[in-house]
Amino acid sequence: MLRYIALRAALALAVAFTVSLAAFLLLNVAGDPAQAIAGEDATPDVIEAIRDRYGLDRPLPVRYFDWLGGVLQGDFGTSYYWHKPVAELVADRADETITLALSALSVTIIIALPLGALAALNPNSWIDRFALGVAVSAQAVPNFWLGLIMIILFGVMMPIFPVSGDSTWKHFVLPAFVLGASSVPAVMRLTRTGLIEVMGADYIRTARSKGFRGWPLLRRHAMRNALLPVISVLAVQLGQKFGGSVITESIFAINGLGRLALESILGMDIPTVQMLIFVFAIVFVAMNLLADILNAALDPRIRIG
């Protein structure tokens, strides 16, 4: 088990390193950063001055290892726009995004797992069709549109929840629902197919022949097997919640990382964008690592090869 975790962690580290390189190259090779910072009408002198000031005249490998060295020490550089250390900027805003992502994932779990399980236990019944309907609509509806509709419904027509800001838990209800809804189809369907497959498995028949029925059968024999694939997908979905926060945070005016990403892209704040890409990617990698470890803990076939 320990070996397995160590191996997975090493792989995750390798991925993280690759991601850092990609994040750096995307921003520095795709265009001239000095030109971008200076704006379209800047004179060559200004551009040269910016290049000099931010050290953009140095060769690419030097700048990368300089940046990487800083990252390893927790120094992500200084924001061109806010003139503050990027790490501080990100740390300030991380809370909101973490709250949003986790509550969105909870929404996904609360809707998708029971719905998927009910659909699986009553295949081709009305509940199964209803679940399918929910999945199709959630898949088809874009996030920003659902956000606006939610604002009209629950902010304007029935003002139950605040629609802008992040000071109380109530502020997070609508954005969490909007962000969480986008993952419902994938998770619901996987739960459904997983559980249908498990309920048809030979070992469930064995358990039934021992007299297990209903909830004990589900809890003792079906649940863990059916959840194995769902866990992996939930991890990926949580990673996507961080990325998805860009749109949702903008709609609901939540001052989190997503909004910071948008602002720094608009403001050509390369160190901040670079760090955010890196952070989002690391979250993704970490979540996958966590899913691998959870799967190994739950499935002895992985744990003891």
Binding site: K210, N225, P300
Partner: peptide, 19 residues
């Protein structure tokens, strides 16, 4: 089912819960 009539099946490879 169980205490009075027990049953064993054809597929020993899959009839036990793997986890």
């Amino acid at each position: 089912a169980g205490p009075r009539i027990g049953m064993i099946f054809q597929e020993p490879m899959t009839s036990l819960n793997p986890v």
